[in-house]
């Protein structure tokens, strides 16, 4: 990977991927001292701009850096932090760390799957929620833990799930 300025790339703009966002990403890449070893940092930035990393964004990054699209996709698919699907308005993360597991996190996520009618890492039909299973958010003292966006719910019981969901429905 070399200094990217020389490469000019046309952004595959469409309804969901507006030009301003591509401009922001391009500006970020152009301002880097060197793009050597910076692919993961660029993808972090791209995901924070677009919310997810669709094929067109991955290809844009690849062309910008002058590397094969497969290499970018290889990195995106390797790390669980990167997602290629759009996310719901709210992300419900259920901690599946060991501490939460032995205190019943498996029942919590099954309950949520049933109530929201989705599998994990899927988005609900109304686009409101994405359900995720995550590895330990480190609040083991509060196990089992459910996190909605940035808000943490500790010591969650199965019969509290409806209340939690309802809070974000309105």
């Amino acid at each position: 990977m070399t200094k990217p300025q020389s490469i000019s790339v046309t952004a595959p703009v469409n309804e969901d991927l507006p030009k301003e966002k591509f401009d922001e990403l391009e500006g970020f890449i152009d301002e880097m001292e060197t793009t050597k070893g910076a692919l993961i940092a660029i993808l972090h930035k791209a995901q924070s701009i677009f919310g997810y990393l669709p094929r067109d964004v991955q290809l844009f990054v690849a062309r910008k850096l002058g590397i094969p699209g497969a290499e970018v996709f290889g990195v995106v698919s390797f790390y669980s932090y990167f997602t290629t699907k759009p996310r719901g308005k709210h992300t419900i993360s259920v901690c599946m760390g060991t501490a939460c597991f032995v205190r019943g996190a498996d029942k919590i996520i099954e309950g949520l799957k049933e109530k929201l009618n989705v599998e994990s890492n899927e988005i609900t039909e109304d686009g409101l929620f994405t359900l995720k299973d995550v590895r330990c958010i480190g609040a083991c003292g509060l196990a089992p833990v459910v996190m909605v966006d940035d808000k943490v719910f500790g010591r969650v019981k199965e019969n509290e799930l409806d209340d939690i969901i309802e809070k974000y429905r309105s």
Partner: peptide, 22 residues
């Protein structure tokens, strides 16, 4: 920054990830 991969705690994997690769 890492991006969520348990194997990256292994030192050679960690260094590959630092270099922006899988």
């Amino acid at each position: 920054l890492g991006a969520g991969a348990f194997v990256c705690g292994e030192e050679t994997a960690l260094l590959n990830s630092c270099e922006g690769q899988r």
